[in-house]
């Protein structure tokens, strides 16, 4: 239960940084915190108290089926982490290009498209 509260707090903190901070790098950090909060939420959905990692070992398939945590959210979160890496890579290269073209990385100075 505590994990869910903490992950929602992380999402809120990331959303605050994304919305209200003006520096683009701070917005990226906020985005990272928000997505990590959602990943934490998703992994803890599959958690079982006293569960083991879903790796097939000596004890056999029956033990794994009854004692392991849910492996599906772990797969979903791994996919999502890879997606977030790609987004962060593209975002950081865009920020570098923005700095080269305009000399600033403050979001309220990048305002030439309006109306």
């Amino acid at each position: 239960m505590l994990v869910y509260v903490i992950s929602m707090l992380m999402v809120g903190l990331g959303a605050y940084a994304l919305m209200l901070k003006e520096n683009l790098i701070k917005k990226m950090i906020g985005l990272g915190i928000m997505s990590n909060g959602i990943h934490l939420f998703l992994i803890s959905v599959g958690y079982k108290i006293g569960g083991v990692a879903p790796i097939l070992k000596q004890a056999g398939l029956e033990y794994l089926a009854t004692h392991s945590v849910d492996p599906v959210p772990q797969a979903l979160v791994m996919t999502s982490i890879v997606i977030n890496i790609s987004i962060t890579a593209v975002a950081l290269s865009l920020i570098i290009q923005a700095y080269r073209k305009t000399g600033t990385i403050e979001a309220d100075k990048l305002r030439s498209l309006r109306g």
């Binding site: 919305m19 209200l20 979001a107 309220d108 305002r111 309006r114 109306g115």
Partner: peptide
């Protein structure tokens, strides 16, 4: 309406939320 679209990203994000 046109003046409300003034280009600032924070205002756009506030609308989204």
């Amino acid at each position: 309406l046109r003046d409300a679209h003034n280009g600032s990203l924070s205002r756009y994000l506030t609308w989204v939320f």
